[in-house]
Amino acid sequence: MSHAHPQSLFVLGCSHHETPLEVRERFTLSPERIPALLQALQQCSNLSESLVLATCNRFEIYAHARNEKALPDIREILCQTLEVETALLNAHAYRLQNLNAIQHAFSLAAGLDSQILGETEILGQMKQALAIAQEFENTGPVLNRLFEKSFQSAKIVRTQTGIDKGQISIGNIAADLAKRIFGKLHKNRVLLIGSGEVGQRTAQALKNRGVHDLTVSNRTAENAQALAQTLEARELPFQELTQSLHQFDTIISSTAAPGHILSREDFQTAQRTRPARPFFLIDLAMPRDLDPALDSLENCYLYNLDDLAAIANENLARRSDECQPARTLLNTQAWQLWLQLRRRALMPAD
């Protein structure tokens, strides 16, 4: 790490890359406590600008320093606010300066530094962090420009590379597959069997993509009722399941039943009333709820947990392949910003 130059931009923080979970827990700052930290940083005479980014995977302070005393001041404020020892902070915190700090912010906004590569949630969190810092008047020309350019670069990277292509969550993969089978999902009739968490998330992902007609069925009536309320869905008595199959297009099964709850014959009967309409069957249960022989049925598309996980892994591998082109693009953008800031005499020429 290089020494902080007078009037330099730097980022001090810790993330899931280097810091174990039990340490990160100690650096956690609830949203209510961020304003107090921002105010403390604002009162520091050695800092001209500051911003706090606190997510579940990272805690970072972006700052523009007036002189070399800024860094010890920030460490002291941070240790007081988080109630942690200076030694712990020094052991786990990283510090990046000037061009490296810009490259880090750009990578972060593009999702390259995220636990789930290419995810877009971090962009929203960065925008929120900027908005809060601006509200407290902690930011100025350097940090405002840094973050705005980060957002623009993230957009460029997402457009020009495949860094965010291909879903990697089970729910979104299932929703993508449903679109490949049915096209628009607003008329899709979805049945959720059981109350497994992954099943609920998959149903929610389908609702987010336009599904209006959701029905839940559970062996325990109370669970079905609670689930129906949570997902704003209709209820179907479990004993009527087999004879009602023809009413649904997508069936998500996520029960704790020891064996198959629906057989090939059940669907063959259901298909007779709707031979041209496909069935999309998502088996998220372990052991499996749906007879694997269903896959051989014409117009029946069966996906189990392994199938969905294989797609997620493949998409993740493709995203990793896009990492290097994305970094090259971001480094060029970061270099342009660095030159701009230097031209405006806001940054040191070291």
């Binding site: 490949r180 089978i181 049915f182 096209g183 496909p278 996906y303 797609i311």
Partner: peptide
């Protein structure tokens, strides 16, 4: 082609560009 992709769990390349089987 789309049905083959869905049945054999293929989802990249041309399969991702084809319209849905129902459409």
């Amino acid at each position: 082609l789309q049905q083959h992709g869905l049945k054999h769990k293929r989802h990249q390349g041309i399969y991702a560009l084809l319209p849905s089987v129902q459409q």
